[in-house]
Measured scan of single mutants.
Amino acid sequence: MSYSVTLTGPGPWGFRLQGGKDFNMPLTISRITPGSKAAQSQLSQGDLVVAIDGVNTDTMTHLEAQNKIKSASYNLSLTLQKS
């Protein structure tokens, strides 16, 4: 079951990613910084990142996902799936 979260910026957003197409692993939330915008939302460590700002992550490399997140200036919309 997927869910959506919109973090209001600017960054830093307070989470780290792992995985990506180049690692043959789905993009997942690997760490959440305590007290951060991510920590105050529904994000959980281990959640799968399905889309970033409406763009499906199935074919994204780790770097492409990082760049997509960094390019979000004020709002960052994520679609996630609980692990």
Results as ranks from 00 to 15, higher is better:
71 S>C: 14
10 P>W: 07
40 Q>F: 12
80 L>H: 01
1 M>D: 15
72 A>G: 12
7 L>I: 07
81 Q>T: 14
14 G>V: 01
67 N>M: 08
59 T>Y: 09
28 T>N: 07
45 Q>N: 08
57 T>M: 03
43 L>N: 00
76 L>G: 03
57 T>W: 02
2 S>E: 06
21 K>W: 07
29 I>C: 05
55 V>Y: 13
69 I>A: 05
72 A>F: 06
29 I>M: 05
81 Q>S: 13
54 G>V: 00
30 S>Y: 06
35 G>E: 09
15 F>Q: 00
24 N>G: 12
35 G>L: 06
57 T>S: 08
26 P>V: 02
27 L>I: 10
35 G>Y: 06
21 K>R: 10
24 N>H: 07
74 Y>H: 14
76 L>I: 08
77 S>N: 12
11 G>S: 10
58 D>A: 11
45 Q>S: 11
26 P>T: 03
76 L>Q: 03
22 D>N: 13
40 Q>E: 13
45 Q>D: 07
13 W>V: 05
49 V>F: 01
41 S>W: 07
18 Q>L: 11
45 Q>A: 15
81 Q>P: 02
47 D>C: 04
50 V>A: 06
67 N>Y: 12
25 M>D: 07
74 Y>P: 15
81 Q>D: 08
42 Q>F: 07
44 S>H: 15
43 L>H: 00
75 N>G: 15
43 L>G: 02
48 L>G: 06
45 Q>G: 06
75 N>V: 11
3 Y>G: 03
47 D>P: 00
42 Q>S: 13
16 R>N: 12
56 N>L: 14
74 Y>G: 15
32 I>C: 04
18 Q>A: 11
1 M>F: 14
49 V>W: 01
40 Q>H: 11
7 L>N: 02
52 I>T: 02
2 S>N: 15
8 T>A: 15
62 H>D: 05
39 A>C: 09
32 I>L: 07
30 S>I: 06
30 S>P: 02
78 L>F: 04
55 V>H: 11
18 Q>Y: 06
38 A>G: 05
80 L>N: 02
21 K>F: 08
46 G>T: 04
78 L>H: 00
38 A>Q: 02
52 I>M: 05
17 L>M: 12
34 P>Q: 10
38 A>H: 03
31 R>Q: 09
44 S>P: 03
48 L>N: 11
15 F>S: 01
33 T>Q: 08
33 T>H: 15
40 Q>T: 11
79 T>N: 10
23 F>A: 11
16 R>I: 12
